[in-house]
């Protein structure tokens, strides 16, 4: 338990010297995991599987973040600086501002569901591929 309590950084220093030594049993699998069972993360990072995963992840989350932040800030800025516009009545006394605010709720749900769908279809299978190739489990 004491070992587990150490910071992640401190337990890692051994594998560097051992990297590159192949064992007799299964040299193919061992290229990603050294003889102590420590994964060689630098090698894993350079695999095509990992690059694809990273590209798929970042190409979803960063544009999506830009999208929801700008939509939220548009709502905030309209409420602060375009009072007359957001005060336009739409349904009964419910005005455009309230609807835009509720629209933020809707987009939040859509993005949330969209991301979990995307993660299930495009990210998780790719993670599985990477785990199978490198022999490193979660």
């Amino acid at each position: 338990m004491t070992k587990a309590m150490r910071s992640p950084g401190e337990a890692q220093h051994e594998y560097r010297e051992i990297r590159g030594f192949a064992s007799f049993d299964d040299p193919e699998a061992l290229s990603y995991v050294d003889s102590n069972g420590n994964p060689n993360f630098e090698l894993i990072r350079q695999t095509d599987e990992f690059r694809t995963l990273r590209r798929r992840l970042t190409s979803f989350i960063f544009p999506m973040t830009a999208l929801f932040l700008s939509s939220y800030l548009t709502f905030v800025l309209l409420s602060a600086y375009a009072k007359d516009f957001v005060s336009t009545k739409v349904i009964g006394v419910i005005n455009l501002g309230i609807l835009l605010g509720l629209g933020q709720f809707v987009t939040s749900i859509i993005i949330t569901l969209g991301y979990s769908r995307y993660a299930k279809r495009r990210l998780d299978p790719q993670r599985k591929l990477l785990a199978e190739k490198t022999g490193v489990e979660e």
Binding site: P39, F41, I44, R45, F50, L53, R54, L57, R127, L130, A131, T134, V136, E137, E138
Partner: peptide
């Protein structure tokens, strides 16, 4: 690698 893929 860990942050993005969860492996290890």
């Amino acid at each position: 690698v860990r942050a993005i893929s969860g492996i290890g």
